[in-house]
Computed example of a mutant assay.
Amino acid sequence: MSELLSKAIADWQLMQSVELIATLLALAYVILALKQSLWCWPAALLSTILFTQVMWHSALLSDAILQLYYAGMAIYGWWRWQQLKQSVKAGAAGDKQAPVYEWSWQRHGLLISLTAVIGLGLGYFMAGYTQADFAYLDAQTTAFSVMATWLVTRKLVSNWLYWVVIDAVSIFVYAQKHLYFLTGLFMLYTIIALAGYFVWRHHFVQQQQQSLTVNA
């Protein structure tokens, strides 16, 4: 009995250590992304590898699958941002940062509707065929996180607004699962996402002004 208890404590301590390291790497990712640094993607890749183990151990199966997607998007994001950075060399000499973009509210409305339907389908599967906790809620955050991560790779300004909502919901889920490092991380994420929106929005407005000046 004592051996089983010792093993359980050791496993818990290991998961806590893995969660802490992954949390620090994830925090580095989002701060570097706010600064539009290419190095955000290696930090994201290492973080997702560790978080995959944490999510699987906590029976958050949709989140575990999501981490594998994040790993692939980290590789794609590194390539995509390099392409955008190279476009600066061929563009205006006064703008040292790669451009950021924005969509119309109609396009966002369609994207939100499609993502919500996919989330419902994933939630139905997880609730009916797995032992996943918070099946529908976890599935919705998973679906929207997949979409929002893709928007980050495309450098869309409003990706940060999606993350504000996703992070706020995730705070509740992770607190219920006693993943305290993650809960604290997502509290910081919510604040950083708000800051990220205004920083990227400011860059976008500057781009528009420079475009008007060039075309005048």
Rank of each mutant, 00 (worst) to 15 (best):
159 N>H: 11
170 S>C: 14
40 C>P: 11
13 Q>V: 09
212 L>R: 13
210 Q>I: 08
166 I>V: 14
204 F>R: 14
91 G>K: 13
73 M>N: 12
102 E>F: 15
60 L>P: 02
111 L>P: 04
169 V>D: 03
56 W>L: 10
166 I>S: 05
9 I>G: 03
79 W>H: 11
45 L>I: 15
94 G>W: 15
155 K>W: 13
193 A>P: 07
17 S>R: 03
112 I>E: 06
31 I>G: 10
141 T>H: 00
149 T>Y: 09
27 L>P: 12
26 A>P: 03
169 V>T: 08
140 Q>Y: 15
79 W>S: 03
50 L>Q: 01
203 H>Y: 07
53 Q>G: 04
123 G>E: 00
58 S>N: 05
181 F>K: 12
69 Y>P: 15
8 A>G: 05
177 K>E: 06
92 A>G: 14
81 W>G: 09
58 S>K: 09
70 Y>L: 09
95 D>N: 09
35 K>N: 08
14 L>R: 15
189 Y>C: 10
8 A>H: 08
122 L>M: 11
87 S>I: 09
139 A>K: 03
94 G>M: 10
27 L>C: 03
108 H>T: 03
164 V>K: 01
128 G>N: 07
18 V>K: 11
216 A>Q: 04
125 F>E: 00
38 L>R: 12
81 W>T: 12
100 V>I: 01
188 L>D: 02
50 L>Y: 15
63 D>G: 10
